[in-house]
Amino acid sequence: MTAPAAPGPDHAHALAAERVRHALGPVTVVRSTPLSGGLYNSARLLELADGRHLILKTAPTVTTPALTHEQGLLGTEALFHRLAAATGARVPTVLHHQPAGPDTPAEWLLLSYLDGTTWDAARDRLTPADRAALRRGLGESLARVATVTGPAYGYPQPAAALTAPDWPSAFTAMLHAVLADATRFAVRLPAPTALLAGLPERHGHHLAPVRRPALVHFDAWEGNVVLTRAADDTWHLSGLIDGERAFFGDPLAELVGLDPLGTAEHDPDLMAGYRSVTPTLTLDTAARARLALYRIYLALIMRVESAPRAYEGSFATWLDTWSAERITEQLAVLDDLAG
């Protein structure tokens, strides 16, 4: 499976300029630079004649193979940024969102540009004190985001059809959807599908205590956190980007999205920042069981998406191994907690 050929630089620049004029009126785009790092949507950094810098994100066409929940992701991102901004969290400003339609084969989103560098790019320049302060700030920011309450549980875009009036039902639908995607794309799983599909029912008593559909970014790893460096060499959070994977659900799921390869709940600085806003956050048996369920869910997404996106080489090999080990590990955690 191969992706469709990307438009040439002249065409891409002209299209970007046309979209900016559609959103903002008679402005001039003097430079349009493609950005790397995204695995689903494409992004370009735009420089306007008046000195402003903007980000234009474009989704794949609606006919491109995708997972069930990957419907209207840029609409989700626009919603996330608007809701998160109202809490005081630093996020890009939404300038325009254009859904896919008869005259728009792929949805697009125009955002303000957050100046700085991503955390993962700056990692080697951070001191332990920098990292501790930044983790506290990130925990506080995400706790504020989680104060937003959605209208229902699950993914907000109607096209995905993955919402429900309670969290156990929504999470069951979300998990079953990615398992159905695995079957659709012939992805081999490291555990029987029936066993994985039955996890929400088996552990439903741990999901039931979630009584409010909180806004969850679910992808706030260091590549989606922007930092700036002050004149005194201290680092500060510039903002949170790429809210396209957001949903309404258990705020505890944010800890899983923070560090796909780690355990954020064991980070004292991050937890101190989070509890400065939400001091009632607890990590009892029910919470640990839910974290294990969400880790399995995220590992399944990462494993299954490799098929429609046609990952290859060492990254594909690593992802296959890591996701299998992660799912097996977290199933064991659930067994231990149940035992």
Rank of each mutant, 00 (worst) to 15 (best):
T58V: 07
E47I: 01
P65T: 07
L45H: 12
L39V: 07
G38Y: 13
P60V: 11
T63S: 10
R44L: 05
A59K: 15
D50Y: 03
N41F: 06
G37Q: 07
A59D: 13
I55Q: 15
Y40T: 11
L46A: 04
A49K: 13
T61C: 04
T61S: 10
S36Q: 12
R52I: 07
A43Y: 09
N41A: 09
P60Q: 07
D50G: 04
D50I: 02
T63Q: 13
G37L: 02
K57W: 14
E47M: 00
Y40F: 14
G37I: 03
A49V: 02
A59Q: 09
L39C: 06
L35S: 05
G38N: 11
L56P: 00
L46V: 05
A49G: 01
S42D: 10
L46T: 06
R44G: 11
P60L: 11
G38L: 06
L48Y: 14
T61Q: 09
K57A: 14
L56S: 00
L56F: 01
T61N: 05
G51S: 13
L45R: 14
T61E: 10
T64P: 01
L35I: 07
I55V: 15
L46Q: 11
E47V: 02
L45Q: 07
L39N: 03
N41R: 08
K57P: 15
N41S: 12
L54W: 06
P65A: 07
T58F: 00
I55N: 15
T64H: 13
R44V: 11
T63V: 12
L46K: 06
T58P: 00
Y40K: 06
Y40Q: 11
T58S: 05
K57I: 11
P65F: 08
P60I: 14
L39R: 13
D50H: 10
T61I: 02
S36H: 10
S42G: 14
G37A: 03
A59P: 00
L39M: 08
R44C: 12
N41D: 13
V62W: 02
R52C: 04
K57S: 14
L45G: 04
E47A: 09
H53M: 03
Y40D: 05
L35G: 02
L46E: 05
Y40R: 11
L46D: 02
R52E: 10
A59I: 01
G37H: 04
T58G: 01
N41C: 14
L35C: 07
A49R: 14
A43C: 09
G37T: 07
L48A: 13
K57M: 14
I55H: 15
R44I: 04
A59F: 06
G51K: 12
S36A: 15
S42R: 15
G51A: 06
P65I: 01
D50P: 00
A43Q: 08
S42I: 09
T64C: 13
L39F: 10
R52G: 04
L35F: 08
A59C: 12
L56N: 01
T64Y: 12
S36I: 06
S42T: 15
P60M: 07
N41G: 04
G38A: 11
H53R: 15
L46R: 11
L39Y: 05
P65E: 06
L35W: 04
T61G: 08
T64N: 11
L35K: 09
L56K: 03
Y40W: 12
R52A: 10
T61D: 09
L48S: 15
R52Q: 08
T63E: 13
H53Y: 03
D50S: 08
R44M: 12
